[in-house]
């Protein structure tokens, strides 16, 4: 499983600095092409002029929430086929329903999963495409 993100373009939206550092280290070690941004606005701006294979999105973000960003992505012609994985720190059913409703491929809870699990799920999602 360890090479499955090799060469894949990942856009990761995470506003927490600590978590961002860890994610960067982990994903770069997996040799994927990682772009890390801290707000939804930055994400959408990046997607304007760049292609990615998968988007990993935090729900709670400063400015636009993960759900709003998801809505934008799924309503843009050139973006709506890109799989989106939602990350959250809470295990709320209403969040999960919203995520599914808006078209997210997966909904993962950060505190209960290890980063390896999350990375596996991302790789899994990519390979199902």
């Amino acid at each position: 499983m360890s090479n499955e993100l090799n060469g894949k373009r990942v856009l990761w939206v995470e506003d927490d600095e600590f978590l961002g550092t860890i994610v960067e280290k982990k994903l770069l070690a997996k040799q994927c092409i990682l772009t890390h941004v801290t707000t939804g606005e930055q994400a959408l701006k990046y997607l304007d002029t760049n292609l990615v294979d998968i988007i990993v999105l935090d729900i709670v973000l400063p400015g636009m929430s993960g759900f709003e960003i998801l809505k934008h992505i799924k309503s843009a012609e050139k973006l709506k086929e890109v799989p989106v994985v939602l990350l959250s720190n809470l295990n709320r059913p209403e969040d999960m329903e919203m995520g599914v409703k808006l078209g997210a491929e997966r909904f993962l809870v950060k505190a209960t999963l290890s980063l390896d699990d999350i990375v596996d799920q991302i790789a899994d999602t990519l390979h199902k495409q």
Binding site: D16, F18, L19, I22, K26, N89, K110, A111
Partner: peptide, 12 residues
């Protein structure tokens, strides 16, 4: 939960 997650992932 956010700092706790950070600690969890780093220690791992």
């Amino acid at each position: 939960r956010t700092p706790l997650t950070g600690t969890k992932w780093t220690l791992n």
